[in-house]
Simulated assay, not measured.
Amino acid sequence: MNIQKSFADASKENVGSLYLVATPIGNLEDMTFRAIRTLKEVQLIAAEDTRQTRKLLTHFEIGTRIVSYHEHNKQASGPELIRLLLEGQSIALVSDAGLPAISDPGADLVKDAIENGISVIPIPGANAALSALIISGLPTDRFLFAGFPPRERKSLMKWLLDMQAQKGTLLFYESPHRINKTLDALQECLGDRQIACIRELTKRHEEAVRGRISECIAWFEEHPPLGEFCVVVEGSEGEGASELPAADIWWSEFDLAAHVAHYEEQFDRKEAIKKVALDRGLPKREVYNEVNR
Rank of each mutant, 00 (worst) to 15 (best):
L183F: 10
N14H: 14
G137D: 02
F143Q: 09
I82R: 01
I62K: 04
E174Y: 12
Q164M: 09
D96F: 05
L156E: 11
G98L: 10
R83Y: 09
A272P: 01
Q187K: 10
I114Y: 13
L282R: 10
R65H: 14
A261G: 04
F229P: 00
K5I: 14
A246D: 10
R193T: 10
I195E: 03
A101T: 15
H72P: 02
T53S: 14
L160D: 01
S11T: 13
W250T: 14
I179T: 09
E71W: 00
N289V: 00
R210D: 04
G191V: 13
S103C: 11
A146K: 11
E221F: 02
I118L: 07
K55S: 03
S6F: 08
P283A: 11
G88I: 10
I62M: 05
G168W: 08
L186A: 06
S119R: 11
Q166M: 12
R153C: 00
T50V: 06
L56G: 05
I195W: 06
H259Y: 03
D192P: 00
G16S: 03
V260P: 00
V94T: 05
G137K: 03
I3G: 00
A128M: 05
E174H: 11
V233L: 14
E264Y: 07
T23R: 04
G137F: 08
